[in-house]
């Protein structure tokens, strides 16, 4: 008997959050008394399979055929479905990234199996895999169980601690062949246009976010705005030259409120909240963000929240462990300086 963990990779390297899924799988496998197998596809899959052993897998199935060199839903799903039908694992776990969500959902359907998404706790209850997952923007916790022979689970990023890497742990590594995908329903992908300096918010340990307050930048406007709105110019300048340096000093990702996104201060990819990304970093620094309920929905799970806001009544202070009441255009540069001094 086995349990599977799908290890996501990109450009020949494992996505580090996959080790969290592996740790979640390890606990379940021990509880159920089954072997834990990592499933790895693509460039460098064999090496990543070995690495998976270091992080807790008992064995690894890998496939580095051309058909799965790059992520493609059809080809990936066809192979995972075949592996599940052959080995009948009690569970298949992956970290809930965009790719994993669609892959796991597709395979769960192909196998007529239950899927529990976004789990933050996992256990076995009377023989059934049972998970807790947040619902209603985290206002409620929902417990779900699955009664199918194989249960598919996606786990929320940063909800499970990866096991420490142990180079002495090795495992049986088994090569598998890809399955021809159905051409009729396969898409053709042009390469990914990676955005420069982009940090994945969901995996970030530290996030610095800016809101509508970013527009109150004291910096003088240039003579020629090139048709841009004055507030947009000021906010963009602030994101680039005030918030970004703090993020760099901290090794943090940059987030934003919806108000900042909708006003065109920063692209949607940065939006945190109910209609943006749900994040749970160790440290979340909200600058010029009031803390509306829909913003809270995306960041309430952060370990330590810091608020910088000139309004002492802003709701964000009710959520924050530390607050500085003041103008972010004075506070943030001082903070960046203090950090650099401390870190150097």
């Amino acid at each position: 008997m086995t349990g599977f963990v799908w290890i996501e990779s990109f450009e020949g390297r494992a996505v580090s959050a996959s080790w969290e899924a592996l740790a979640a799988g390890r606990t379940l496998a021990d509880e159920l008394g089954v072997k834990l197998a990592a499933v790895v596809y693509g460039e460098n899959a064999r090496e990543i399979g070995r690495e998976a052993a270091n992080y807790g897998a008992d064995m690894a199935f890998y496939c580095d055929d051309n058909a799965v060199a790059e992520y493609q839903l059809e080809a990936y799903a066809a192979l995972l479905t075949r592996l599940v039908k052959t080995h009948k694992p009690t569970f298949v776990i992956a970290v809930a990234s965009n790719r994993a969500r669609e892959l796991m959902a597709s395979c769960a359907l192909d196998c007529e199996s239950g899927l529990i998404s976004d789990a933050i706790e996992l256990r076995v209850d009377e023989g059934q895999i049972t998970a807790a997952r947040p619902a209603y923007a985290g206002k409620v916790l929902m417990e779900m169980s699955s009664c199918s022979p194989t249960t598919f689970v996606t786990v929320r990023a940063r909800a499970f601690q990866p096991l420490p890497k142990d180079e002495r742990r090795s495992a049986e590594i088994v090569a598998v062949e890809s399955v021809a995908a159905d051409d009729e329903i396969s898409y053709v992908a042009e390469g990914i246009r990676a955005e420069l300096g982009k940090v994945n918010l969901a995996d970030a340990a530290i996030i610095v976010s800016g809101g509508r307050g970013m527009a109150n930048n004291p910096k003088a406007l240039p003579a020629d705005l090139g048709g841009e709105d004055a507030n947009v110019w000021k906010a963009k300048e602030g994101f680039a030259n005030t918030l970004q340096p703090l993020a760099e000093a901290l090794g943090a990702a940059v987030g934003a409120s919806r108000a900042a996104v909708d006003a065109g201060y920063i692209p949607y990819e940065h939006q945190v909240g109910q209609t943006g990304k749900v994040v749970n970093p160790d440290l979340y620094i909200a600058c010029g963000i009031s803390g509306a309920i829909q913003h809270q929905a995306g960041m309430r799970g952060s370990k330590i929240i810091v608020a910088v806001n000139k309004d002492p009544e802003a709701p964000i202070f009710k959520l924050a462990r530390y607050g500085i009441v003041g103008d972010l255009y004075e506070v943030v540069p001082a903070l960046t300086k203090a950090l650099r001094a401390k870190l150097s």
Binding site: N98, Y187, G191, E195, E269
Partner: peptide, 12 residues
Amino acid sequence: MLEQGKQVLSGK
């Protein structure tokens, strides 16, 4: 839109 950036896809 994926975590790593944008991608163009086409199909039937």
